[in-house]
């Protein structure tokens, strides 16, 4: 098992390197010169050249990449052009904020989707199934920025139950899901974020469980005299690898930060940081954010893969 884990981690390294190359070069493929946003319009050519040299923009791109990579592996992702603060700090703070609501959203979505999907699969074609399928279709198809605005109108404007935007007074350092003062800020963005995974996972749970139920071994379970509870357990246990795979992907998407949701709720996560970096051409910040996000995506995939070998004995562990 440990050998297998070590092997999978090694496999992840070339993927991470590839990801870093793409992150780095994407920014150069975009039109425009990052320097333009830094220099006053009346700057002399010498000043421009000096600034270029300062940020390393005068070297060939390949060298820039290796410089950047060498610094990146030591944790130095450069300095934000706009705020002049280390990119790593900015990104980790935003990443933490996004992670807080994304993980909560995924847990909520996974639990609800498991219930809805299982109920639907056990009652295919019946009203319960139709309700569950409608919820899942709505979850997938309602644009989440619209959903966010509707929730704000209802819960913040109409009923004055929850704050509309922002994060608690203490910011990310003092945030905790277990203190109402803090948690109430996160509820609406979390619920909005949970909508899409709820829809997607309900759908895949429904089909995975329904598929399991049509198998011979479910007939054997019934022939053994087991109650429905036991049948549900077997069905879910068999559907779990598939559900985990879908869930891992969804968590990856959410951590990428939903720019739209974080903008609607002004939630200081990766999505907001990224959109700010793009709008201000803050290239080090953008590169750093994308790199961290891509790496976390790789890590999530790795974790899901490892979890799957745990829950599905048919996957070889050698």
């Amino acid at each position: 098992m440990w050998l297998y884990i070590a092997k999978r981690v090694l496999y992840a390294i070339p993927i991470a390197l590839g990801v870093s190359i793409i992150c780095f070069s994407l920014v150069y493929l975009a039109p425009g010169d990052p320097i333009q946003s830094l220099i006053p319009p009346d700057a002399s050519d010498e000043d421009i050249a000096a600034i270029r040299r300062l940020y390393g923009f005068d070297k060939p791109v390949v060298f820039q990449y290796f410089d950047w990579l060498a610094r990146a592996v030591t944790g130095d992702l450069g300095t934000s052009l706009q705020s002049n603060r280390p990119v790593l700090n900015e990104v980790t703070r935003a990443f933490g904020n996004t992670l807080m609501i994304a993980v909560a959203a995924v847990i909520v979505a996974f639990v609800l989707a498991t219930i809805f999907g299982t109920l639907a699969a056990f009652n295919l074609g019946k009203p319960v199934d139709k309700v569950a399928t409608s919820i899942s279709t709505l979850g997938v198809s309602i644009p989440n920025y619209w959903m966010g605005i509707v929730l704000v109108i209802l819960f913040s404007v109409q009923w004055r139950l929850l704050p509309a935007t922002g994060m608690g007074g203490d910011g990310s350092d003092g945030f905790s899901w277990f203190e109402w003062d803090q948690a109430r800020y996160a509820i609406l963005p979390m619920v909005t974020m949970a909508m899409i995974p709820l829809g997607v996972v309900t759908r895949s749970t429904r089909s995975a469980v329904a598929d399991t139920l049509s198998q011979d071994y479910v007939q054997l379970l019934r022939a053994k005299g087991l109650g429905e509870g036991r049948v549900v357990l077997h069905a879910l246990r068999n559907a779990l690898p598939q559900m985990l795979a879908v869930m891992g992907l969804q968590l990856g998407y959410l951590i990428g930060g939903s720019i739209l949701i974080e903008t609607v709720f002004n939630w200081p996560g990766t999505g907001l940081v990224m959109s700010r970096a793009i709008l201000t051409r803050d290239i080090p910040l953008l590169q750093g954010t994308i790199l961290i996000l891509a790496l976390s995506f790789v890590a999530i995939n790795l974790i899901v893969d490892l979890l799957q070998t745990l829950v599905d004995p048919r996957i070889k562990r050698s």
Partner: peptide, 11 residues
């Protein structure tokens, strides 16, 4: 059952 391949729960 006829098919021992599919009649036992694989997991």
């Amino acid at each position: 059952f006829q098919e021992p391949m599919t009649a036992l729960d694989p997991v």
